[in-house]
Design a protein around this nucleic acid. Structure first.
Lengths: 130, 130
DNA sequence: TCTTGATCCTGTAGCGACTACAGAAGTTAT
DNA sequence: ATAACTTCTGTAGTCGCTACAGGATCAAGA
Protein backbone atom coordinates (compact mmCIF):
# COMPACT_ATOMS: atom_id res chain seq x y z
CA UNK A 1 0.00 0.00 0.00
CA UNK A 2 1.25 3.43 -0.96
CA UNK A 3 0.57 6.96 0.09
CA UNK A 4 -0.66 9.39 -2.52
CA UNK A 5 2.78 10.71 -3.45
CA UNK A 6 4.05 7.24 -4.27
CA UNK A 7 0.85 6.42 -6.17
CA UNK A 8 1.36 9.62 -8.14
CA UNK A 9 4.97 8.75 -8.95
CA UNK A 10 4.12 5.22 -10.02
CA UNK A 11 1.14 6.19 -12.15
CA UNK A 12 2.26 9.51 -13.56
CA UNK A 13 -0.98 11.11 -12.40
CA UNK A 14 -0.48 14.27 -10.34
CA UNK A 15 -1.42 14.28 -6.67
CA UNK A 16 -4.02 16.99 -7.07
CA UNK A 17 -5.39 15.18 -10.09
CA UNK A 18 -5.77 11.94 -8.14
CA UNK A 19 -7.78 13.77 -5.50
CA UNK A 20 -9.79 15.40 -8.27
CA UNK A 21 -10.57 12.00 -9.81
CA UNK A 22 -11.74 10.82 -6.43
CA UNK A 23 -13.97 13.88 -5.93
CA UNK A 24 -15.48 13.41 -9.37
CA UNK A 25 -16.12 9.72 -8.81
CA UNK A 26 -13.78 8.66 -11.63
CA UNK A 27 -12.03 6.30 -9.23
CA UNK A 28 -13.45 4.73 -6.04
CA UNK A 29 -12.44 6.30 -2.75
CA UNK A 30 -9.28 4.63 -1.49
CA UNK A 31 -9.06 3.27 2.04
CA UNK A 32 -7.67 5.55 4.69
CA UNK A 33 -4.93 4.85 7.21
CA UNK A 34 -5.55 5.72 10.87
CA UNK A 35 -3.85 9.07 10.26
CA UNK A 36 -6.50 9.80 7.61
CA UNK A 37 -4.08 9.47 4.74
CA UNK A 38 -5.22 7.76 1.57
CA UNK A 39 -3.68 4.34 0.98
CA UNK A 40 -3.48 2.97 -2.55
CA UNK A 41 -3.20 -0.69 -3.44
CA UNK A 42 -1.31 -1.93 -6.49
CA UNK A 43 -4.67 -2.34 -8.18
CA UNK A 44 -5.57 1.29 -7.44
CA UNK A 45 -2.28 2.37 -8.96
CA UNK A 46 -2.94 0.22 -12.02
CA UNK A 47 -6.25 1.99 -12.46
CA UNK A 48 -4.54 5.36 -12.31
CA UNK A 49 -2.01 4.21 -14.89
CA UNK A 50 -4.86 3.14 -17.15
CA UNK A 51 -6.49 6.53 -16.75
CA UNK A 52 -3.22 8.23 -17.57
CA UNK A 53 -2.83 6.27 -20.79
CA UNK A 54 -6.36 7.06 -21.91
CA UNK A 55 -5.91 10.75 -21.16
CA UNK A 56 -2.57 10.79 -22.99
CA UNK A 57 -4.43 9.34 -25.97
CA UNK A 58 -6.71 12.36 -25.79
CA UNK A 59 -9.87 10.59 -24.68
CA UNK A 60 -12.16 12.97 -22.80
CA UNK A 61 -12.38 12.21 -19.11
CA UNK A 62 -15.95 10.96 -19.49
CA UNK A 63 -14.87 8.47 -22.15
CA UNK A 64 -11.95 7.47 -19.98
CA UNK A 65 -14.36 6.72 -17.18
CA UNK A 66 -16.44 4.58 -19.52
CA UNK A 67 -13.37 2.70 -20.71
CA UNK A 68 -12.34 2.10 -17.13
CA UNK A 69 -15.71 0.68 -16.22
CA UNK A 70 -15.51 -1.55 -19.30
CA UNK A 71 -12.23 -2.97 -18.05
CA UNK A 72 -13.62 -3.62 -14.62
CA UNK A 73 -16.95 -5.13 -15.61
CA UNK A 74 -17.22 -8.90 -15.93
CA UNK A 75 -17.45 -8.80 -19.71
CA UNK A 76 -15.41 -6.56 -21.91
CA UNK A 77 -17.69 -5.11 -24.53
CA UNK A 78 -15.18 -4.86 -27.32
CA UNK A 79 -17.69 -3.32 -29.67
CA UNK A 80 -18.36 -0.42 -27.30
CA UNK A 81 -14.65 0.13 -26.93
CA UNK A 82 -14.15 0.17 -30.66
CA UNK A 83 -17.02 2.59 -31.23
CA UNK A 84 -15.68 4.95 -28.62
CA UNK A 85 -12.18 4.78 -30.03
CA UNK A 86 -13.26 5.25 -33.63
CA UNK A 87 -15.38 8.25 -32.79
CA UNK A 88 -12.40 9.68 -31.01
CA UNK A 89 -10.12 9.00 -33.97
CA UNK A 90 -12.64 10.74 -36.18
CA UNK A 91 -12.61 13.78 -33.92
CA UNK A 92 -8.83 13.83 -33.89
CA UNK A 93 -8.74 13.74 -37.70
CA UNK A 94 -11.24 16.57 -37.88
CA UNK A 95 -9.16 18.65 -35.53
CA UNK A 96 -6.06 17.99 -37.60
CA UNK A 97 -7.83 19.15 -40.75
CA UNK A 98 -9.11 22.24 -39.04
CA UNK A 99 -5.64 23.12 -37.82
CA UNK A 100 -4.19 22.57 -41.28
CA UNK A 101 -6.72 24.96 -42.74
CA UNK A 102 -5.78 27.40 -40.01
CA UNK A 103 -2.09 27.02 -40.74
CA UNK A 104 -2.63 27.69 -44.42
CA UNK A 105 -4.68 30.79 -43.68
CA UNK A 106 -2.02 32.08 -41.31
CA UNK A 107 0.75 31.43 -43.81
CA UNK A 108 -1.09 33.38 -46.44
CA UNK A 109 -1.73 36.25 -44.07
CA UNK A 110 1.89 36.59 -43.03
CA UNK A 111 3.33 36.03 -46.49
CA UNK A 112 3.72 39.71 -47.29
CA UNK A 113 4.48 40.67 -43.76
CA UNK A 114 8.04 41.98 -43.67
CA UNK A 115 9.58 43.96 -40.91
CA UNK A 116 9.89 47.57 -41.82
CA UNK A 117 6.57 48.01 -43.59
CA UNK A 118 4.86 51.23 -42.78
CA UNK A 119 1.43 49.67 -42.88
CA UNK A 120 1.14 46.03 -41.91
CA UNK A 121 -0.40 43.93 -44.70
CA UNK A 122 -1.63 41.30 -42.27
CA UNK A 123 -3.48 43.81 -40.16
CA UNK A 124 -5.01 45.48 -43.19
CA UNK A 125 -6.27 42.13 -44.43
CA UNK A 126 -7.78 41.41 -41.06
CA UNK A 127 -9.35 44.83 -40.99
CA UNK A 128 -11.07 44.75 -44.36
CA UNK A 129 -14.79 44.94 -43.81
CA UNK A 130 -16.32 42.39 -46.07
CA UNK B 1 -25.81 53.03 -34.23
CA UNK B 2 -26.94 49.49 -33.46
CA UNK B 3 -28.20 47.64 -30.46
CA UNK B 4 -26.24 44.62 -29.29
CA UNK B 5 -28.28 42.08 -31.26
CA UNK B 6 -27.61 43.85 -34.53
CA UNK B 7 -23.93 44.30 -33.63
CA UNK B 8 -23.80 40.58 -32.93
CA UNK B 9 -25.42 39.71 -36.26
CA UNK B 10 -23.12 42.02 -38.21
CA UNK B 11 -19.93 40.88 -36.53
CA UNK B 12 -20.63 37.23 -35.93
CA UNK B 13 -19.71 37.63 -32.27
CA UNK B 14 -22.33 36.30 -29.86
CA UNK B 15 -24.23 38.71 -27.64
CA UNK B 16 -22.97 37.17 -24.43
CA UNK B 17 -19.47 37.17 -25.86
CA UNK B 18 -19.66 40.87 -26.69
CA UNK B 19 -20.63 41.62 -23.11
CA UNK B 20 -17.84 39.34 -21.95
CA UNK B 21 -15.31 41.24 -24.07
CA UNK B 22 -16.53 44.46 -22.52
CA UNK B 23 -16.23 43.09 -18.98
CA UNK B 24 -12.71 41.86 -19.70
CA UNK B 25 -11.64 45.17 -21.20
CA UNK B 26 -10.97 43.64 -24.63
CA UNK B 27 -13.14 46.33 -26.21
CA UNK B 28 -13.95 49.78 -24.81
CA UNK B 29 -17.32 50.26 -23.18
CA UNK B 30 -19.85 51.32 -25.77
CA UNK B 31 -22.04 54.36 -25.23
CA UNK B 32 -25.45 53.83 -23.71
CA UNK B 33 -28.84 55.02 -24.92
CA UNK B 34 -31.16 56.70 -22.42
CA UNK B 35 -32.81 53.33 -21.83
CA UNK B 36 -29.42 51.98 -20.72
CA UNK B 37 -28.97 49.83 -23.80
CA UNK B 38 -25.54 49.59 -25.40
CA UNK B 39 -25.22 51.38 -28.72
CA UNK B 40 -22.55 50.26 -31.18
CA UNK B 41 -21.08 52.44 -33.90
CA UNK B 42 -19.93 51.05 -37.23
CA UNK B 43 -16.40 51.35 -35.88
CA UNK B 44 -17.32 49.29 -32.83
CA UNK B 45 -18.78 46.63 -35.08
CA UNK B 46 -15.62 46.66 -37.21
CA UNK B 47 -13.60 46.03 -34.10
CA UNK B 48 -15.78 43.07 -33.19
CA UNK B 49 -15.37 41.71 -36.69
CA UNK B 50 -11.61 42.02 -36.35
CA UNK B 51 -11.74 40.15 -33.06
CA UNK B 52 -13.85 37.44 -34.65
CA UNK B 53 -11.33 36.91 -37.45
CA UNK B 54 -8.43 36.69 -35.06
CA UNK B 55 -10.27 34.21 -32.86
CA UNK B 56 -11.26 32.15 -35.89
CA UNK B 57 -7.56 32.03 -36.75
CA UNK B 58 -7.01 30.51 -33.35
CA UNK B 59 -5.15 33.41 -31.76
CA UNK B 60 -5.57 33.37 -27.99
CA UNK B 61 -7.75 36.17 -26.71
CA UNK B 62 -4.75 37.91 -25.14
CA UNK B 63 -2.94 37.93 -28.50
CA UNK B 64 -6.11 39.13 -30.15
CA UNK B 65 -6.22 42.02 -27.75
CA UNK B 66 -2.62 42.87 -28.60
CA UNK B 67 -3.34 42.71 -32.33
CA UNK B 68 -6.33 44.96 -31.85
CA UNK B 69 -4.31 47.54 -29.98
CA UNK B 70 -1.69 47.38 -32.75
CA UNK B 71 -4.36 48.23 -35.32
CA UNK B 72 -5.61 51.14 -33.29
CA UNK B 73 -2.30 52.66 -32.29
CA UNK B 74 -0.82 55.42 -34.45
CA UNK B 75 1.93 53.19 -35.82
CA UNK B 76 1.44 49.63 -36.86
CA UNK B 77 4.37 47.64 -35.58
CA UNK B 78 4.52 45.10 -38.34
CA UNK B 79 7.40 43.26 -36.74
CA UNK B 80 5.41 42.64 -33.55
CA UNK B 81 2.51 41.39 -35.61
CA UNK B 82 4.74 39.03 -37.54
CA UNK B 83 6.37 37.68 -34.39
CA UNK B 84 3.04 37.03 -32.81
CA UNK B 85 1.69 35.34 -35.92
CA UNK B 86 4.76 33.16 -36.43
CA UNK B 87 4.76 31.98 -32.87
CA UNK B 88 1.13 31.09 -33.31
CA UNK B 89 1.85 29.22 -36.54
CA UNK B 90 4.56 27.33 -34.73
CA UNK B 91 2.13 26.35 -32.00
CA UNK B 92 -0.45 25.26 -34.55
CA UNK B 93 2.14 23.06 -36.29
CA UNK B 94 3.13 21.52 -33.00
CA UNK B 95 -0.46 20.74 -32.21
CA UNK B 96 -0.93 19.14 -35.61
CA UNK B 97 2.09 16.90 -35.05
CA UNK B 98 0.90 15.92 -31.63
CA UNK B 99 -2.50 14.99 -32.99
CA UNK B 100 -0.93 12.97 -35.79
CA UNK B 101 1.07 11.00 -33.26
CA UNK B 102 -2.13 10.49 -31.33
CA UNK B 103 -3.98 9.32 -34.40
CA UNK B 104 -1.27 6.79 -35.20
CA UNK B 105 -1.30 5.43 -31.66
CA UNK B 106 -5.07 5.11 -31.72
CA UNK B 107 -5.02 3.36 -35.07
CA UNK B 108 -2.54 0.85 -33.80
CA UNK B 109 -4.55 0.24 -30.67
CA UNK B 110 -7.79 -0.42 -32.52
CA UNK B 111 -6.20 -2.41 -35.33
CA UNK B 112 -6.95 -5.80 -33.75
CA UNK B 113 -10.17 -4.67 -32.23
CA UNK B 114 -12.96 -6.60 -33.90
CA UNK B 115 -16.45 -6.92 -32.63
CA UNK B 116 -17.01 -10.32 -31.14
CA UNK B 117 -13.73 -10.72 -29.33
CA UNK B 118 -14.06 -12.24 -25.93
CA UNK B 119 -11.27 -10.16 -24.50
CA UNK B 120 -10.73 -6.72 -25.99
CA UNK B 121 -7.19 -6.34 -27.34
CA UNK B 122 -7.30 -2.57 -26.99
CA UNK B 123 -8.20 -2.73 -23.34
CA UNK B 124 -5.58 -5.35 -22.62
CA UNK B 125 -2.92 -3.18 -24.24
CA UNK B 126 -4.01 -0.22 -22.17
CA UNK B 127 -3.98 -2.36 -19.05
CA UNK B 128 -0.50 -3.79 -19.35
CA UNK B 129 1.53 -2.54 -16.43
CA UNK B 130 4.84 -1.50 -17.80
C1' DT C 1 13.79 16.38 22.85
C1' DC C 2 13.55 19.69 19.64
C1' DT C 3 13.60 21.12 15.06
C1' DT C 4 13.56 20.96 10.29
C1' DG C 5 11.61 19.55 6.16
C1' DA C 6 8.76 16.59 3.63
C1' DT C 7 4.33 14.93 3.00
C1' DC C 8 -0.35 14.83 3.69
C1' DC C 9 -5.18 16.79 4.68
C1' DT C 10 -9.52 19.91 3.42
C1' DG C 11 -11.49 23.51 1.05
C1' DT C 12 -11.57 27.02 -2.21
C1' DA C 13 -10.36 29.67 -6.26
C1' DG C 14 -8.21 30.26 -10.75
C1' DC C 15 -7.25 29.09 -15.70
C1' DG C 16 -9.41 30.17 -20.99
C1' DA C 17 -13.06 31.66 -23.44
C1' DC C 18 -17.02 31.55 -23.38
C1' DT C 19 -22.15 29.93 -22.49
C1' DA C 20 -26.35 29.62 -20.00
C1' DC C 21 -29.30 30.79 -17.08
C1' DA C 22 -32.71 33.86 -13.74
C1' DG C 23 -35.33 37.67 -13.01
C1' DA C 24 -36.36 42.26 -14.26
C1' DA C 25 -37.15 46.00 -17.43
C1' DG C 26 -37.93 47.96 -21.71
C1' DT C 27 -39.64 47.84 -26.74
C1' DT C 28 -42.50 46.51 -30.74
C1' DA C 29 -46.43 44.47 -33.08
C1' DT C 30 -51.15 43.07 -33.11
C1' DA D 1 -53.92 45.66 -23.55
C1' DT D 2 -51.44 41.91 -24.43
C1' DA D 3 -47.96 39.06 -26.23
C1' DA D 4 -43.55 38.38 -27.90
C1' DC D 5 -39.18 40.03 -28.43
C1' DT D 6 -34.90 42.22 -26.88
C1' DT D 7 -31.96 43.92 -23.54
C1' DC D 8 -30.22 44.54 -18.82
C1' DT D 9 -27.37 42.79 -14.52
C1' DG D 10 -25.41 39.24 -12.01
C1' DT D 11 -24.13 34.69 -11.23
C1' DA D 12 -22.84 30.00 -12.17
C1' DG D 13 -21.50 26.29 -15.20
C1' DT D 14 -18.34 24.14 -18.76
C1' DC D 15 -13.49 20.94 -18.98
C1' DG D 16 -9.70 19.08 -16.66
C1' DC D 17 -7.03 20.17 -14.04
C1' DT D 18 -3.72 23.32 -11.06
C1' DA D 19 -2.52 26.26 -7.32
C1' DC D 20 -2.97 27.99 -3.30
C1' DA D 21 -3.97 28.66 2.14
C1' DG D 22 -3.81 26.97 6.50
C1' DG D 23 -3.34 23.15 9.18
C1' DA D 24 -1.93 18.23 10.70
C1' DT D 25 1.28 14.54 10.63
C1' DC D 26 5.54 12.06 10.01
C1' DA D 27 10.64 10.82 9.58
C1' DA D 28 15.33 12.02 10.33
C1' DG D 29 19.06 14.56 12.29
C1' DA D 30 21.37 17.38 16.21
Amino acid sequence: MFEIGEASRQSGVGIETIRYYEREGIVPKPVRATNNRRMFSAHDVGRLRFLKKCRDLGFPLADTKTLLSLTEGDEEDCRSVKELAELHIFNVREKINELKRLEAALNELTANCDSGNVSCPMLSKLRTDQ
